[in-house]
């Protein structure tokens, strides 16, 4: 379930990034974070399905909660990147004006 939730988050973020002009709020970074995890879990699920067998999608409450947590953690990581890049960018602008 966490794979599905992350993949959905990646698709939604990509649509938002495509619609927003000039990569506003660095949405491309958030897209790449979610897509990176989606691709890795995709390989993990496929290999586990063929090697170990069992269900391809784990649809449980625990997996759903994990999916939501992972998406929130991605958002937090993106927020931290925005904050740091904003600070560094602001600092560079100040020093270049001096």
């Amino acid at each position: 379930m966490y794979f599905i939730i992350t993949a959905l988050a990646a698709i939604v973020t990509t649509i938002l990034w495509y619609k927003m002009p000039q990569n506003k709020y660095r949405l491309s970074t958030l897209c790449l974070i979610y897509w990176g995890a989606t691709f890795m879990w995709f390989v993990d699920h496929i290999m586990a399905f063929f090697i170990e067998g069992g269900e391809f999608f784990e649809i449980t409450m625990d997996a759903t909660l994990l999916g939501i947590t992972v998406v929130l953690c991605g958002l937090v990581a993106w927020g931290i990147i925005l904050f740091i890049k904003g600070k560094v960018g602001g600092f560079k602008n100040i020093t270049s004006q001096m």
């Binding site: 992350t6 974070i33 979610y34 897509w35 691709f39 992972v70």
Partner: peptide, 20 residues
């Protein structure tokens, strides 16, 4: 930087899953 973000993003979220 695209590859870097893809890899670090994936690693970060997978690490959370492993901690979980």
């Amino acid at each position: 930087s695209w590859l870097n973000t893809l890899l670090w993003g994936g690693v970060f979220l997978l690490a959370i899953e492993h901690i979980w």
